[in-house]
């Protein structure tokens, strides 16, 4: 048992997740019910999709702080395109995803061409994106959306809420990209030793741009989902979401120095944050205290992971 636990790269966070689940199950009977578990999954779906995308960026040794703003821009774009059902919904989605990918590509090109640290570049696009979202929406929420959009955010298929299906779909796709494709392999290689990858003939710049495009794609998907759920295009949506997503990735065991990380770990990190938020709600901890506790837990999780990594050696 100990061996299996120590061998698994996500062992630490997995144990932590089981622990908090047991804790909340003990504290309140409302926690461990099918209904509540479905609520948790539904709540975390947007953060999960953002986190999957940014996992690639962090593994490649970069960072993307513009996620929340990209989400807002894409949320507004999809809302504008689906107002009063002017366009077919599929077209609106496609165009929104293209917008997300292009904004990701902008991040990627600037990082690659200027060699400015990604932290700074995406800090800039974070502000640019927020401005664009406000410009496009005139600073006001966009309502009167196509009704099918609402179904996407709040409907179910076979009893499963659609956002959860998106979460599962994104998880599978990202897992495959990271572990089964040459692109995924090279993302890890670049994060592990960029110079060695370059000298060996890996098209480092190209891969880096793709990585930011991927992150932009998932930010757009998350934006569509959020707009669908609240049935409004909110220019102020997604404030600080990038930090939740990055926290989940790091709690999930992805190294901030790049080179290693897993999508499963990120999923566990997302669930961990989601379970704690939900559990604290259920036992009536005030929202202010929740933030204090959350921050403490993030630090604790990373420290425990370090201890765990040492144990493994």
């Amino acid at each position: 048992m100990k061996k299996i636990f120590l061998k698994s790269p996500t062992g630490g966070i997995f144990v932590a997740l089981v622990f908090v689940c047991l804790l909340f199950s003990g504290l309140t009977s409302k926690f461990f019910t099918p209904m509540n578990l479905s609520v948790i999954l539904n709540q975390v779906s947007v953060n999960a999709i953002l986190a999957f995308g940014v996992t690639f960026v962090i593994i490649s040794g970069g960072i993307d702080l513009s996620l929340g703003s990209l989400l807002a821009v894409c949320g507004v774009v999809v809302a504008l395109l689906s107002q009063q059902g002017e366009f077919p919904l599929a077209f609106a989605f496609l165009l929104t995803l293209v917008v997300g990918v292009l904004m990701g590509a902008f991040n990627g090109f600037v990082v690659v061409l200027t060699k400015v640290p990604p932290f700074i570049v995406t800090l800039g696009t974070m502000t640019i994106g927020r401005g664009l979202a406000l410009l496009l929406s005139n600073g006001r929420p966009i309502s009167d959306l196509n009704e099918s959009l609402n179904v996407l955010g709040n409907g179910t298929v076979g009893g499963i809420p659609i956002p959860i299906l998106f979460l599962i779909g994104s998880f599978i796709i990202c897992q495959i990209i990271l572990t089964k494709t040459v692109f995924g392999r090279y993302v890890k290689a670049i994060g592990g030793n960029e110079m060695a990858a370059f000298v060996s003939g890996v098209r480092v710049n190209r891969i880096k741009i793709y990585v930011y495009m991927l992150s932009g794609f998932f930010a757009a998907l998350a934006g569509i989902l959020l707009t669908a759920r609240i049935n409004t295009g909110q220019p102020n949506a997604g404030l600080g979401f990038e930090l939740d997503a990055i926290a989940a990735v790091i709690i999930g065991g992805t190294s901030t120095r790049g080179g290693k990380g897993t999508i499963t770990g990120t999923l566990l990190g997302v669930l961990f944050i989601g379970v704690i938020n939900n559990g604290l709600d259920l036992i009536n901890v005030s929202a202010y205290w929740q933030q204090v506790i959350m921050g403490g837990i993030i630090i604790l999780a990373v420290v425990l992971d370090l201890v765990y990594q040492k144990l493994k050696k």
Partner: peptide, 20 residues
Amino acid sequence: KELGMIPEMSVGENMTLGLM
């Protein structure tokens, strides 16, 4: 260390780096 290997990756993955 600087120009050749990816320390965290496996021996096999290091061998085929750039030659996928």
